[in-house]
Amino acid sequence: MTQDALSRMLARRDWILADGATGTNLFNMGLQSGEAPELWNVDEPDKIRALYRGPVEAGSDLFLTNTFGGNASRLKLHDAQDRVRELNRAGAELAREVADAAGRDIVVAGSIGPTGDIFAPMGTLTHEAAVEMFHEQAEGLKEGGADVLWVETISAPEEYKAAAEAAALAGMPWCGTMSFDTAGRTMMGTTSEGMVALVGKLKDRAPMAFGANCGVGASDLLRTVLGFTAQGPERPVIAKGNAGIPKFSGGHIHYDGTPELMAEYAVMARDCGATIIGGCCGTTPEHLAKMRAALEERERGPRPSLERIVEVLGGFSSENDGTGDDAAPARARRGRRRS
């Protein structure tokens, strides 16, 4: 498939099923806490092929590469900062192999997560350094055959802008999501309304699609999606919510969202106005299969109310969506790994 594969799919489909978690499924395969998953693109290629086949066989139309932490800043923690291009290229090559063998159109999305650094003046990261890191990663993903870059779990508008510039330098289409995990805002204070404005200001560097991923639970994410669609954005909206709420048990984090709950979430995400619908932390191929079936079998319904979202998916983690006067203040943090 060519690099405009997602554009072609969007032109003929009114919803697209994305994939689920990366970290959750890799931990199930034996990845240890503290290990860099990206090293497995070279050291454990068969496990990465299996990771990719999971969503494809469950019915996903698009899946992300195992490159979320594949930037120089993250890989430096594992003394692998000089392997950015290699590890991203390998992750995309394995994905291309699985997608091309699927017998149907599958979009390979090159995952790009946050640098984990804080922008100046609060931190030391400059715009130029962020662009350089993202561009290096983008070139590796492009060489490996990714159809589109997929920037995700971003908190800072400055980092989103840097990713946009890097995608343009690489000559690649891109999609970009932020994580609204602090009382309806990102950790750096961006609201759903603010993100729509941010995307609009990017003009010719704007993403093909934008939205939210990770965050708290599925209910919160859909409230954010409603915040996007209320602004009447021109671009397709992405919804990639966690499979329920994380619970720590037996030394591991488990998510309480059942496949049946995620099927309800998928249908409600479509009704909220999302076009690209997937899962994030805790979402397994079993969840995705139920989501696919629900999207295929159930008719599109009216836009759900907040009360309806709570009734079906459970309560919100905060009283409002971050746009009110009592919204949480912005806080700095190191970006967290998508799991």
Rank of each mutant, 00 (worst) to 15 (best):
203 K>N: 15
156 A>P: 13
203 K>D: 03
177 T>H: 12
141 L>E: 09
152 E>N: 14
150 W>I: 12
145 G>L: 03
140 G>M: 08
180 F>R: 06
153 T>K: 02
209 A>V: 03
190 T>M: 15
165 E>S: 04
187 M>F: 10
158 E>C: 05
195 M>V: 00
186 T>F: 09
196 V>E: 00
211 G>I: 15
201 K>L: 13
145 G>N: 11
141 L>R: 12
187 M>R: 12
190 T>K: 08
152 E>W: 12
191 T>G: 06
143 E>Q: 14
196 V>G: 01
151 V>S: 02
174 W>H: 15
158 E>Y: 03
168 A>R: 06
154 I>N: 01
159 E>I: 05
141 L>H: 15
172 M>D: 08
192 S>G: 04
174 W>P: 00
197 A>P: 14
198 L>T: 09
155 S>D: 02
186 T>W: 02
169 L>E: 14
195 M>K: 12
200 G>N: 14
195 M>R: 11
189 G>D: 15
146 A>M: 05
178 M>H: 03
177 T>A: 09
174 W>M: 13
187 M>G: 06
208 M>Q: 07
181 D>W: 10
194 G>V: 00
198 L>S: 06
154 I>T: 09
143 E>N: 09
154 I>V: 10
143 E>P: 10
140 G>P: 10
170 A>M: 05
187 M>K: 08
190 T>G: 08
167 A>C: 00
145 G>Q: 09
211 G>N: 11
186 T>Y: 03
204 D>H: 14
141 L>M: 12
140 G>I: 01
155 S>P: 12
160 Y>D: 10
169 L>S: 08
167 A>T: 00
166 A>C: 02
204 D>M: 11
164 A>F: 12
156 A>F: 02
200 G>R: 07
184 G>F: 02
165 E>K: 03
196 V>W: 00
175 C>K: 00
150 W>A: 13
150 W>P: 07
150 W>Y: 14
205 R>A: 13
164 A>W: 09
205 R>H: 13
180 F>K: 05
193 E>K: 13
149 L>N: 02
147 D>L: 07
176 G>R: 03
139 E>G: 08
142 K>L: 15
158 E>K: 10
194 G>A: 04
178 M>V: 07
199 V>G: 05
172 M>Q: 04
210 F>D: 06
164 A>I: 09
196 V>K: 02
199 V>L: 06
208 M>Y: 09
185 R>T: 01
142 K>W: 15
180 F>V: 11
185 R>V: 00
184 G>C: 04
182 T>S: 15
162 A>E: 12
157 P>F: 07
186 T>Q: 14
202 L>Q: 05
207 P>A: 01
171 G>E: 03
181 D>L: 08
179 S>P: 02
182 T>N: 12
175 C>F: 08
202 L>P: 11
154 I>R: 01
147 D>I: 10
207 P>R: 01
168 A>T: 15
174 W>N: 04
159 E>S: 02
167 A>V: 02
203 K>Y: 07
157 P>Q: 05
210 F>W: 10
171 G>C: 03
148 V>E: 10
189 G>L: 09
148 V>D: 09
142 K>C: 10
171 G>M: 07
159 E>A: 05
198 L>Q: 05
146 A>S: 11
144 G>L: 13
149 L>T: 03
200 G>F: 08
156 A>H: 09
